[in-house]
Design a protein around this nucleic acid. Structure first.
Lengths: 109, 109
DNA sequence: TAATAATATAACCATATTGTTATATGTATA
DNA sequence: TATACATATAACAATATGGTTATATTATTA
Protein backbone atom coordinates (compact mmCIF):
# COMPACT_ATOMS: atom_id res chain seq x y z
CA UNK A 1 0.00 0.00 0.00
CA UNK A 2 1.12 3.54 -0.82
CA UNK A 3 1.83 5.61 2.29
CA UNK A 4 1.14 9.37 2.39
CA UNK A 5 4.10 11.78 2.29
CA UNK A 6 3.34 13.15 5.80
CA UNK A 7 3.21 9.63 7.26
CA UNK A 8 6.49 8.58 5.61
CA UNK A 9 8.16 11.81 6.78
CA UNK A 10 6.94 11.17 10.33
CA UNK A 11 8.37 7.64 10.45
CA UNK A 12 11.63 8.83 8.85
CA UNK A 13 11.89 11.56 11.53
CA UNK A 14 11.65 8.84 14.17
CA UNK A 15 14.48 6.98 12.41
CA UNK A 16 16.62 10.06 11.72
CA UNK A 17 18.57 10.20 14.97
CA UNK A 18 21.87 8.39 15.79
CA UNK A 19 20.73 7.37 19.29
CA UNK A 20 17.48 5.87 18.01
CA UNK A 21 19.30 4.08 15.17
CA UNK A 22 21.70 2.60 17.76
CA UNK A 23 18.76 1.48 19.90
CA UNK A 24 17.26 -0.28 16.87
CA UNK A 25 20.61 -1.92 16.12
CA UNK A 26 20.78 -3.20 19.73
CA UNK A 27 17.19 -4.49 19.54
CA UNK A 28 18.18 -6.44 16.42
CA UNK A 29 20.47 -8.49 18.71
CA UNK A 30 17.90 -8.96 21.46
CA UNK A 31 15.01 -7.27 23.28
CA UNK A 32 16.18 -4.71 25.84
CA UNK A 33 14.63 -2.70 28.64
CA UNK A 34 15.36 0.99 29.30
CA UNK A 35 17.65 0.29 32.28
CA UNK A 36 19.92 -1.80 30.01
CA UNK A 37 20.09 0.91 27.36
CA UNK A 38 20.94 3.72 29.81
CA UNK A 39 24.55 2.60 30.63
CA UNK A 40 25.31 2.16 26.90
CA UNK A 41 24.53 5.81 26.09
CA UNK A 42 25.83 9.01 27.70
CA UNK A 43 22.34 10.39 28.28
CA UNK A 44 19.83 10.25 31.13
CA UNK A 45 17.13 7.63 31.73
CA UNK A 46 14.31 10.04 30.77
CA UNK A 47 16.13 10.83 27.52
CA UNK A 48 16.30 7.10 26.65
CA UNK A 49 12.67 6.71 27.68
CA UNK A 50 11.66 9.49 25.31
CA UNK A 51 13.67 7.98 22.45
CA UNK A 52 12.02 4.55 22.78
CA UNK A 53 8.67 6.31 23.14
CA UNK A 54 9.30 8.11 19.83
CA UNK A 55 10.18 4.78 18.20
CA UNK A 56 7.00 3.25 19.65
CA UNK A 57 4.81 6.08 18.29
CA UNK A 58 6.25 5.34 14.83
CA UNK A 59 5.55 1.62 15.44
CA UNK A 60 9.24 0.85 14.90
CA UNK A 61 9.36 -0.97 18.25
CA UNK A 62 6.84 -2.82 20.45
CA UNK A 63 6.79 -3.02 24.23
CA UNK A 64 6.09 -5.91 26.58
CA UNK A 65 5.98 -5.44 30.33
CA UNK A 66 7.73 -8.20 32.30
CA UNK A 67 7.31 -7.47 35.97
CA UNK A 68 8.92 -4.16 36.79
CA UNK A 69 10.70 -4.04 33.43
CA UNK A 70 9.39 -2.97 30.04
CA UNK A 71 11.12 -4.85 27.24
CA UNK A 72 11.29 -3.29 23.81
CA UNK A 73 11.52 -5.32 20.61
CA UNK A 74 12.16 -4.20 17.04
CA UNK A 75 9.31 -4.27 14.52
CA UNK A 76 11.23 -5.37 11.40
CA UNK A 77 7.99 -5.31 9.40
CA UNK A 78 7.73 -1.56 9.94
CA UNK A 79 11.31 -1.08 8.73
CA UNK A 80 10.46 -3.05 5.58
CA UNK A 81 7.36 -0.90 5.13
CA UNK A 82 9.36 2.32 5.24
CA UNK A 83 11.85 0.92 2.72
CA UNK A 84 8.95 0.05 0.43
CA UNK A 85 7.35 3.47 0.98
CA UNK A 86 10.54 5.28 -0.08
CA UNK A 87 10.78 3.30 -3.31
CA UNK A 88 7.02 3.69 -3.95
CA UNK A 89 6.29 7.33 -3.09
CA UNK A 90 2.82 8.66 -4.02
CA UNK A 91 2.65 9.62 -7.69
CA UNK A 92 2.63 13.35 -8.50
CA UNK A 93 2.32 13.09 -12.30
CA UNK A 94 -0.95 15.03 -12.06
CA UNK A 95 0.88 18.01 -10.54
CA UNK A 96 3.33 18.08 -13.44
CA UNK A 97 0.47 17.73 -15.94
CA UNK A 98 -1.30 20.77 -14.43
CA UNK A 99 1.98 22.69 -14.59
CA UNK A 100 2.22 21.93 -18.32
CA UNK A 101 -1.39 23.02 -18.88
CA UNK A 102 -0.57 26.32 -17.21
CA UNK A 103 2.45 26.70 -19.47
CA UNK A 104 4.78 26.82 -16.49
CA UNK A 105 7.19 24.14 -17.60
CA UNK A 106 10.65 25.03 -18.81
CA UNK A 107 11.84 23.76 -22.18
CA UNK A 108 15.43 24.39 -23.07
CA UNK A 109 18.05 23.49 -25.69
CA UNK B 1 29.64 -0.99 2.88
CA UNK B 2 28.41 -0.26 6.40
CA UNK B 3 27.51 3.42 6.93
CA UNK B 4 28.04 5.10 10.33
CA UNK B 5 24.98 5.92 12.48
CA UNK B 6 25.58 9.69 12.25
CA UNK B 7 25.84 9.54 8.46
CA UNK B 8 22.65 7.47 8.12
CA UNK B 9 20.81 9.82 10.50
CA UNK B 10 21.96 12.81 8.46
CA UNK B 11 20.67 11.37 5.16
CA UNK B 12 17.41 10.28 6.83
CA UNK B 13 16.95 13.85 8.17
CA UNK B 14 17.24 15.11 4.59
CA UNK B 15 14.54 12.61 3.58
CA UNK B 16 12.29 13.19 6.60
CA UNK B 17 10.24 16.11 5.30
CA UNK B 18 7.01 15.95 3.24
CA UNK B 19 8.10 18.74 0.86
CA UNK B 20 11.44 17.09 0.14
CA UNK B 21 9.78 13.68 -0.36
CA UNK B 22 7.36 15.31 -2.84
CA UNK B 23 10.29 16.92 -4.68
CA UNK B 24 11.95 13.49 -4.96
CA UNK B 25 8.70 11.97 -6.23
CA UNK B 26 8.49 14.70 -8.90
CA UNK B 27 12.12 14.16 -9.89
CA UNK B 28 11.30 10.45 -10.39
CA UNK B 29 9.05 11.57 -13.27
CA UNK B 30 11.54 13.99 -14.79
CA UNK B 31 14.32 16.46 -13.93
CA UNK B 32 12.97 19.82 -12.71
CA UNK B 33 14.33 23.27 -12.02
CA UNK B 34 13.44 25.36 -8.97
CA UNK B 35 11.09 27.68 -10.91
CA UNK B 36 8.98 24.65 -11.92
CA UNK B 37 8.77 23.37 -8.36
CA UNK B 38 7.72 26.72 -6.85
CA UNK B 39 4.14 26.85 -8.30
CA UNK B 40 3.51 23.25 -7.15
CA UNK B 41 4.16 24.08 -3.48
CA UNK B 42 2.69 26.81 -1.28
CA UNK B 43 6.09 28.08 -0.20
CA UNK B 44 8.52 30.71 -1.46
CA UNK B 45 11.30 30.30 -4.04
CA UNK B 46 14.06 30.55 -1.38
CA UNK B 47 12.31 27.84 0.66
CA UNK B 48 12.30 25.49 -2.36
CA UNK B 49 15.91 26.42 -3.07
CA UNK B 50 16.89 25.49 0.47
CA UNK B 51 15.01 22.17 0.26
CA UNK B 52 16.79 21.10 -2.92
CA UNK B 53 20.06 22.31 -1.41
CA UNK B 54 19.45 20.02 1.60
CA UNK B 55 18.77 17.11 -0.75
CA UNK B 56 21.95 17.93 -2.68
CA UNK B 57 24.07 17.97 0.52
CA UNK B 58 22.77 14.46 1.28
CA UNK B 59 23.60 13.48 -2.33
CA UNK B 60 19.97 12.51 -2.91
CA UNK B 61 19.84 14.78 -5.96
CA UNK B 62 22.34 16.12 -8.49
CA UNK B 63 22.29 19.47 -10.26
CA UNK B 64 23.04 20.44 -13.87
CA UNK B 65 23.02 24.04 -15.01
CA UNK B 66 21.34 24.58 -18.38
CA UNK B 67 21.62 28.24 -19.25
CA UNK B 68 19.88 30.31 -16.62
CA UNK B 69 18.19 27.24 -15.12
CA UNK B 70 19.54 24.65 -12.72
CA UNK B 71 17.96 21.25 -13.30
CA UNK B 72 17.84 18.77 -10.45
CA UNK B 73 17.79 15.02 -10.95
CA UNK B 74 17.20 12.21 -8.46
CA UNK B 75 20.13 10.00 -7.38
CA UNK B 76 18.35 6.65 -7.12
CA UNK B 77 21.63 5.00 -6.14
CA UNK B 78 21.72 7.07 -2.95
CA UNK B 79 18.16 6.02 -2.10
CA UNK B 80 19.16 2.39 -2.54
CA UNK B 81 22.19 3.00 -0.30
CA UNK B 82 20.04 4.38 2.51
CA UNK B 83 17.68 1.40 2.24
CA UNK B 84 20.67 -0.92 2.51
CA UNK B 85 22.13 1.07 5.42
CA UNK B 86 18.90 0.75 7.43
CA UNK B 87 18.83 -3.02 6.98
CA UNK B 88 22.58 -3.28 7.70
CA UNK B 89 23.14 -0.95 10.66
CA UNK B 90 26.58 -1.07 12.36
CA UNK B 91 26.80 -4.01 14.77
CA UNK B 92 26.67 -3.16 18.51
CA UNK B 93 27.11 -6.72 19.89
CA UNK B 94 30.28 -5.53 21.62
CA UNK B 95 28.28 -2.98 23.64
CA UNK B 96 25.91 -5.68 24.84
CA UNK B 97 28.85 -7.98 25.67
CA UNK B 98 30.44 -5.25 27.83
CA UNK B 99 27.08 -4.73 29.53
CA UNK B 100 26.96 -8.44 30.41
CA UNK B 101 30.55 -8.34 31.76
CA UNK B 102 29.53 -5.47 34.01
CA UNK B 103 26.54 -7.50 35.21
CA UNK B 104 24.14 -4.83 34.01
CA UNK B 105 21.88 -7.09 31.96
CA UNK B 106 18.42 -7.96 33.18
CA UNK B 107 17.38 -11.58 33.40
CA UNK B 108 13.77 -12.24 34.24
CA UNK B 109 11.23 -15.09 34.40
C1' DT C 1 2.04 -1.47 54.35
C1' DA C 2 6.46 0.81 53.54
C1' DA C 3 10.52 0.91 50.85
C1' DT C 4 12.79 0.12 46.58
C1' DA C 5 13.42 -0.23 41.61
C1' DA C 6 12.07 0.71 36.75
C1' DT C 7 9.81 3.66 33.80
C1' DA C 8 7.15 7.71 32.31
C1' DT C 9 5.88 12.46 32.49
C1' DA C 10 6.39 17.57 33.47
C1' DA C 11 8.72 21.78 33.19
C1' DC C 12 12.33 23.85 31.34
C1' DC C 13 16.46 25.26 28.27
C1' DA C 14 19.63 25.37 24.13
C1' DT C 15 19.85 24.44 19.51
C1' DA C 16 18.01 22.94 14.99
C1' DT C 17 14.58 23.37 11.55
C1' DT C 18 11.61 25.64 8.33
C1' DG C 19 9.49 29.31 6.94
C1' DT C 20 9.64 34.51 5.76
C1' DT C 21 11.47 38.97 3.17
C1' DA C 22 15.35 41.42 1.25
C1' DT C 23 19.23 41.14 -1.47
C1' DA C 24 23.23 39.15 -4.02
C1' DT C 25 24.89 36.31 -7.83
C1' DG C 26 24.89 34.18 -12.36
C1' DT C 27 23.24 33.93 -17.14
C1' DA C 28 20.80 35.49 -21.32
C1' DT C 29 19.28 39.09 -24.20
C1' DA C 30 17.66 43.88 -25.96
C1' DT D 1 26.16 47.66 -21.27
C1' DA D 2 21.65 47.67 -19.05
C1' DT D 3 17.79 44.82 -18.03
C1' DA D 4 15.41 40.76 -16.91
C1' DC D 5 15.06 36.23 -15.14
C1' DA D 6 16.54 32.14 -12.25
C1' DT D 7 18.72 30.85 -8.27
C1' DA D 8 21.26 31.33 -3.91
C1' DT D 9 22.30 33.54 0.36
C1' DA D 10 21.54 36.55 4.57
C1' DA D 11 19.00 37.91 8.44
C1' DC D 12 15.37 36.96 11.06
C1' DA D 13 11.09 34.68 13.51
C1' DA D 14 8.22 30.75 15.05
C1' DT D 15 8.21 26.11 16.09
C1' DA D 16 10.31 21.47 16.75
C1' DT D 17 13.81 18.65 18.77
C1' DG D 18 16.69 16.64 22.21
C1' DG D 19 18.73 17.23 26.33
C1' DT D 20 18.38 18.31 31.56
C1' DT D 21 16.38 17.78 36.62
C1' DA D 22 12.42 16.88 39.52
C1' DT D 23 8.59 14.12 40.28
C1' DA D 24 4.76 10.79 39.35
C1' DT D 25 3.43 6.11 38.27
C1' DT D 26 3.73 1.13 38.34
C1' DA D 27 5.35 -3.19 40.14
C1' DT D 28 8.13 -5.94 43.44
C1' DT D 29 9.64 -7.12 47.89
C1' DA D 30 10.89 -6.72 52.98
Amino acid sequence: MIMEFEKIADILKALADPTRLKILSLLRIRDCCVCELVPIFNISQPAISKHVSRLKTAELVRETRKGQWVFYSINEKRLEEIGYAISHLPDLSEELRKLEQQGLTVTCE
